[in-house]
């Protein structure tokens, strides 16, 4: 049966991972986008997004996951997330204050497109946290294998 070198875990784990990993990623994105109207937000969603990639790495070995999102790409995404957050904060000067909630001011509760800059900040945070957590995990894995 084993005609090529087996990487990662068994067939059962791989099949289940193939089925669930997309759902986990989607759930992370849902948490991020609904962070301003329901519990959740940038950090929790970002962690779930990172977990989906870590899941992939555990089941299929590190090459398969790093092909999807390499370490250099994740460090670039992390910096981009931080810069995006900072530039959103800087745009607040349009309204006169640093971090001022400058557009769609005072949105309606329970509506998805409201709350001004808070969803945008959540997206930036999730980018930073997701990429950062994945990069930390990848770095610790690479240490071990050296």
């Amino acid at each position: 049966m084993k005609n090529k070198k087996e990487v990662g875990m068994t067939l059962i784990v791989k099949t289940i991972t193939r089925l669930t990993v997309g759902l986990i990623l989607l759930y992370g994105i849902y948490i991020v986008l609904h962070g301003h109207v329901s519990p959740g937000g940038g950090f929790a969603g970002g962690v779930i997004i990172a977990l989906s990639f870590i899941h992939l790495m555990l089941a299929f070995g590190k090459e398969a996951a790093l092909k999807k999102l390499s370490q250099a790409a994740s460090s670039i995404l992390e910096s981009l997330g931080a810069l995006m957050f900072l530039s959103i904060a800087l745009l607040g000067f349009l309204g006169g204050y640093f971090f001022f909630n400058f557009f769609l001011h005072k949105g309606t509760p329970f509506a998805l497109f409201s709350a001004g800059i808070i969803p945008l900040c959540n997206i930036a945070i999730s980018l930073k946290v997701g990429a950062g957590l994945f990069a930390i995990f990848a770095v610790l894995i690479l240490f071990k294998s050296r």
Binding site: G95, G96, Y97, F98, F99, F100, N101
Partner: peptide
């Protein structure tokens, strides 16, 4: 003394 209100 200067006091700045972050985010207004």
């Amino acid at each position: 003394i200067l006091v700045y209100k972050v985010g207004g």
